[in-house]
Design a binder for these strands. Structure first.
Lengths: 343, 343
DNA sequence: TGCTGGCACTCCGGACCCACGAGTGCCAAG
DNA sequence: CTTGGCACTCGTGGGTCCGGAGTGCCAGCA
């Protein structure tokens, strides 16, 4: 029995099953793919594959269905990359290029991804932690009330209101200008972690009479920088694609809908993919979420220059077109990264 | 035949059907509600109600189900307001009070609403058009590059980059300060429509040498003010509730999932409710969307002081608890309005 | 040793039938 | 106008049966 052919059979089973959504039998297999052997031979191979746990039959005398382990082998060793057509590439790139700000980039990404893959797409907003400070602005709104605006390299803007303590209410424009410049000098262009510590040092060095003011502003800034609430946001799109697999409602649609509500879960799912530069695939029961045993996640990190800012990906039934999906995820991640790089 | 009793029968049918999700027969009706008459009598009433188009039987010798017209009558004349318990009120108010900014208010509202009603909740972001300008900031990022930040009363922040034309690249801090003050004077506190025109006038009045600069900044501001792209955003939550009505998948779940993807449709649905101060209900086939014939929308406008900024509501199957849902929608709209008022 | 055709076996799915029961409409009597 | 009675309808669920797809195994062949 040829080991190569056995793998070819597995590949054929996966491809057929994904296409037809029905258990695939030996006869259909030799007809659809030019395997050059008889059904009986294929049956022997299938029996072996089943022994090894790569495929499984729902009941005696039904066709075979890939197991999670089978999909895993397929993804790792059997699937050939399915490059996007140039038309597709152009469509992605032009649609994403139309984005006007960060929010829009994320929205468009999620839309593109869900349309390309016909699955539910999830895109994490770029995290604060890796981004750098582009600009800090301090504005006097009213006596004793300041507005602090923090602009980050990813295009995100955070603002905070600062109420000055009674005794240091009087602030003139010159003081403010000075403060602005000091802050700009130590923070601009730095990563927020670095900027945060640099600002801490700044408070020490500032002239006596400005300490209260500086401290208040710096506190607001560091608070804004360490505010990870927004980090935990994700955009979800293509939920309508759930309608396509109306069957196995309870194994796929319901748990997915529930997971989509829980951003924490989504973040964990995507998070596993964040570090790796390549596209990561979680199949079925792999990973901690038993409710999502019927689903797979295809995800990758994105961000300027390989340095992953955040993750994006799709989640769908284990029975999915892995090569095509992986290609789409990779392509979108690439284009988004490029756009963030330019901005 | 008593007209009053006929209506009581209709009410009972609606309530029972909503509770049990099954066609309701004459016998069950007299048992569950103390109608004080025999099943046969009820049957006569039912026959009349059916003739008038308020109820309908799926097939001969099944129980009755309310029609859209029946629900309409129920909502308009038969339902008694179901006030929220004080515990519920407190829960809503404290959860919404925890919000830290506009985004958060919307997120929390959508979450609250979906949990209260166990339906899919939709909340439109407050529109620009009614809000006022709280502050405008102009910042020199680099020679010839300005950042314009527009802060609105709803807490929304818009920022725009402005590239100055070559010939007026040189801008000193004094000029900028002056510009900032001029803009602040004419725009602050005004509605954006008014601010927009006031800014237009400002360009006329400015000293010769500042015209190019002012014009560029004003252009960016008016552009930001008229940018209705963000107006068209909605937040959706509670999609997991779709899982509860796994049956009638094709009549309810699928079209809803598709509608949720199309923000335009959602806005139209909510939009009908925006003007009225009260809670609006669209039932089944009412309105233009034939795909959504199996669903109802319960919505209302919200915003400070009755002056509707935007809409929020829920969408679910026609078979829903209208009194409870309407109470929840009204309560959430009220609390959100109050919060926006305070901010 | 490995491939192949043949053959008996299994089991799902659909078709069919039937009995049950919930619910109705109608009617005659109160 | 209400009520009890009664015949009728029709969907539901359970049981049976059959066809077909698919399998496992075996003996024969290269």
């Amino acid at each position: 029995m040829s080991e190569d052919r056995k793998l070819a059979v597995l590949r054929a089973i996966v491809e057929d099953y994904v296409a037809t959504e029905e258990p695939v039998g030996s006869k259909a297999l030799v007809e659809r793919h030019g395997l050059g052997v008889s059904p009986a031979t294929v049956r022997n191979d299938m029996a072996a594959l089943e022994d090894e746990g790569f495929i499984h039959q729902p009941h005696t005398s039904a066709g075979r269905v890939p197991t999670d382990k089978g999909y895993r082998l397929f993804v790792d060793r059997l699937s050939t990359v399915k490059p996007m057509s140039t038309a597709e590439r152009r469509a992605i790139s032009s649609f994403l290029d139309g984005a006007v700000d960060l929010d829009d980039v994320v929205q468009r990404s999620v839309r593109t991804l869900s349309q390309l893959t016909r699955q539910v797409a999830v895109v994490q907003y770029p995290t604060l932690s890796r981004s750098t400070v582009r600009h800090v602005e301090v504005v006097l709104l009213a006596p004793g009330r300041l507005l602090v605006v923090l602009i980050l390299s990813t295009g995100r803007v955070e603002q905070r209101l600062v109420e000055l303590p009674r005794e240091s209410c009087d602030v003139d424009d010159e003081q403010l200008l000075d403060l602005r410049q000091r802050i700009g000098r130590v923070a601009a262009g730095r990563r927020i972690a670095d900027a945060s510590t640099a600002l801490g040092v700044l408070v020490e060095e500032v002239p006596e009479q400005d300490v209260a003011l500086t401290a208040a502003v710096v506190e607001a800034l560091t608070e804004a920088m360490s505010d990870h609430r927004r980090d935990e946001r994700v955009a979800v799109g293509g939920a309508a694609n759930l309608a396509r697999f109306g069957q196995d409602f309870d194994t796929t649609v319901r748990p997915l809908l529930e997971a989509l509500e829980e951003q924490v879960v989504l973040l964990r799912l995507l998070g596993e993919a964040a570090d790796a530069g390549a596209v990561t695939v979680r199949i079925g029961h792999e990973g901690p979420y038993t409710e999502l045993a019927g689903t797979s996640v295809v995800a990758t990190g994105y961000g300027p220059a390989q340095d992953a800012l955040a993750s994006l990906g799709i989640v769908g039934p284990t029975r999915m077109d892995y090569p095509g999906t992986m290609a789409a995820v990779r392509a979108v991640a690439r284009y988004v990264s490029r756009i963030l790089d330019e901005a």
